[in-house]
Amino acid sequence: MKSLEELKAIREKMKGQVDIREEGSDATRVVVGMATCGIAAGARPVLTAFSNAVQERDLKNVAVVQTGCIGLCQYEPIVEVYKADGEKTTYVKVKPEMVDEIIDQHIVKGNVVTKYTIDAAKLG
Protein backbone atom coordinates (compact mmCIF):
# COMPACT_ATOMS: atom_id res chain seq x y z
CA MET A 1 0.00 0.00 0.00
CA LYS A 2 1.51 3.30 -1.02
CA SER A 3 -1.32 5.78 -0.79
CA LEU A 4 -4.06 7.02 1.45
CA GLU A 5 -6.53 6.20 -1.33
CA GLU A 6 -5.74 2.52 -1.00
CA LEU A 7 -6.29 2.71 2.76
CA LYS A 8 -9.55 4.52 2.18
CA ALA A 9 -10.70 1.85 -0.27
CA ILE A 10 -10.20 -0.90 2.33
CA ARG A 11 -11.96 1.23 4.91
CA GLU A 12 -15.01 1.79 2.69
CA LYS A 13 -15.15 -1.91 1.85
CA MET A 14 -15.00 -2.96 5.51
CA LYS A 15 -17.07 -0.19 7.02
CA GLY A 16 -20.44 -1.46 5.83
CA GLN A 17 -19.59 -4.83 7.26
CA VAL A 18 -18.30 -3.68 10.64
CA ASP A 19 -21.12 -1.16 11.11
CA ILE A 20 -23.55 -4.04 11.67
CA ARG A 21 -21.97 -4.27 15.13
CA GLU A 22 -23.14 -0.83 16.15
CA GLU A 23 -26.41 -0.38 17.95
CA GLY A 24 -28.50 2.68 17.30
CA SER A 25 -31.84 3.16 19.00
CA ASP A 26 -33.02 5.42 16.18
CA ALA A 27 -32.49 2.70 13.62
CA THR A 28 -34.88 1.65 10.89
CA ARG A 29 -35.57 -2.04 11.36
CA VAL A 30 -36.24 -4.42 8.51
CA VAL A 31 -37.84 -7.50 10.05
CA VAL A 32 -38.05 -10.68 7.99
CA GLY A 33 -40.42 -13.48 9.09
CA MET A 34 -38.25 -16.54 9.42
CA ALA A 35 -40.54 -19.15 10.93
CA THR A 36 -41.05 -22.51 9.21
CA CYS A 37 -43.76 -20.99 7.01
CA GLY A 38 -41.48 -18.10 6.01
CA ILE A 39 -38.48 -20.30 5.28
CA ALA A 40 -40.66 -22.69 3.23
CA ALA A 41 -41.99 -19.77 1.18
CA GLY A 42 -38.44 -18.56 0.45
CA ALA A 43 -37.64 -16.04 3.18
CA ARG A 44 -33.95 -16.94 3.44
CA PRO A 45 -32.85 -15.50 0.08
CA VAL A 46 -34.98 -12.43 0.84
CA LEU A 47 -33.23 -11.97 4.19
CA THR A 48 -29.78 -12.27 2.60
CA ALA A 49 -30.77 -9.92 -0.20
CA PHE A 50 -31.84 -7.24 2.30
CA SER A 51 -28.74 -7.73 4.38
CA ASN A 52 -26.43 -7.49 1.35
CA ALA A 53 -28.25 -4.50 -0.09
CA VAL A 54 -27.95 -2.55 3.17
CA GLN A 55 -24.26 -3.32 3.50
CA GLU A 56 -23.47 -2.62 -0.16
CA ARG A 57 -25.04 0.80 0.13
CA ASP A 58 -23.38 1.33 3.54
CA LEU A 59 -26.70 2.55 4.95
CA LYS A 60 -26.48 4.00 8.44
CA ASN A 61 -28.96 3.05 11.13
CA VAL A 62 -30.62 0.22 9.25
CA ALA A 63 -30.82 -3.16 10.95
CA VAL A 64 -31.92 -6.28 9.12
CA VAL A 65 -33.26 -8.77 11.65
CA GLN A 66 -35.36 -11.89 11.76
CA THR A 67 -38.51 -12.72 13.62
CA GLY A 68 -40.73 -15.76 14.05
CA CYS A 69 -44.20 -16.38 12.60
CA ILE A 70 -46.08 -13.15 12.00
CA GLY A 71 -49.38 -15.02 11.71
CA LEU A 72 -50.24 -14.57 8.05
CA CYS A 73 -48.61 -17.70 6.73
CA GLN A 74 -50.28 -17.60 3.32
CA TYR A 75 -48.68 -14.20 2.65
CA GLU A 76 -45.11 -15.26 3.47
CA PRO A 77 -42.35 -14.24 2.95
CA ILE A 78 -43.41 -11.21 4.98
CA VAL A 79 -41.14 -8.25 5.61
CA GLU A 80 -42.00 -5.52 8.09
CA VAL A 81 -40.25 -2.16 7.96
CA TYR A 82 -40.25 -0.11 11.18
CA LYS A 83 -39.16 3.48 10.77
CA ALA A 84 -37.55 5.29 13.67
CA ASP A 85 -40.83 7.08 14.46
CA GLY A 86 -42.57 3.72 14.93
CA GLU A 87 -44.40 3.73 11.59
CA LYS A 88 -44.78 0.19 10.31
CA THR A 89 -45.16 -1.06 6.74
CA THR A 90 -45.85 -4.69 5.95
CA TYR A 91 -44.70 -6.14 2.63
CA VAL A 92 -46.02 -9.55 1.63
CA LYS A 93 -44.95 -12.33 -0.76
CA VAL A 94 -41.59 -10.66 -1.05
CA LYS A 95 -39.11 -11.97 -3.61
CA PRO A 96 -35.38 -11.17 -3.75
CA GLU A 97 -36.00 -9.18 -6.97
CA MET A 98 -38.18 -6.70 -5.06
CA VAL A 99 -35.53 -5.94 -2.48
CA ASP A 100 -33.59 -3.25 -4.36
CA GLU A 101 -36.77 -1.33 -5.09
CA ILE A 102 -37.95 -1.45 -1.46
CA ILE A 103 -34.55 -0.32 -0.22
CA ASP A 104 -34.08 2.51 -2.71
CA GLN A 105 -37.64 3.81 -2.66
CA HIS A 106 -38.76 3.21 0.91
CA ILE A 107 -35.70 2.98 3.17
CA VAL A 108 -33.61 5.61 1.40
CA LYS A 109 -36.22 8.02 -0.01
CA GLY A 110 -39.11 7.34 2.36
CA ASN A 111 -41.69 6.42 -0.30
CA VAL A 112 -43.56 3.24 0.62
CA VAL A 113 -43.69 0.82 -2.33
CA THR A 114 -47.45 0.45 -2.10
CA LYS A 115 -47.84 -2.25 -4.73
CA TYR A 116 -46.03 -4.82 -2.56
CA THR A 117 -47.78 -4.02 0.72
CA ILE A 118 -50.37 -6.08 2.49
CA ASP A 119 -53.08 -3.58 1.65
CA ALA A 120 -52.42 -3.95 -2.06
CA ALA A 121 -52.42 -7.74 -1.78
CA LYS A 122 -55.78 -7.79 0.03
CA LEU A 123 -57.35 -5.45 -2.46
CA GLY A 124 -56.03 -7.52 -5.34
Binding site: L4, L7, I10, R11, K13, M14, K15, Q17, V18
Partner: peptide, 14 residues
Protein backbone atom coordinates in the same frame (compact mmCIF):
# COMPACT_ATOMS: atom_id res chain seq x y z
CA UNK B 1 -6.14 -5.78 9.86
CA UNK B 2 -9.05 -5.00 7.49
CA UNK B 3 -11.49 -4.86 10.40
CA UNK B 4 -9.19 -2.41 12.18
CA UNK B 5 -9.01 -0.28 9.04
CA UNK B 6 -12.82 -0.53 8.77
CA UNK B 7 -13.11 1.21 12.14
CA UNK B 8 -10.88 4.13 10.98
CA UNK B 9 -7.63 2.29 11.70
CA UNK B 10 -4.38 3.79 10.35
CA UNK B 11 -6.29 6.95 9.31
CA UNK B 12 -4.51 8.87 12.06
CA UNK B 13 -1.11 7.69 10.82
CA UNK B 14 -2.08 8.76 7.29
Amino acid sequence: IDEYIGTDGYQALG
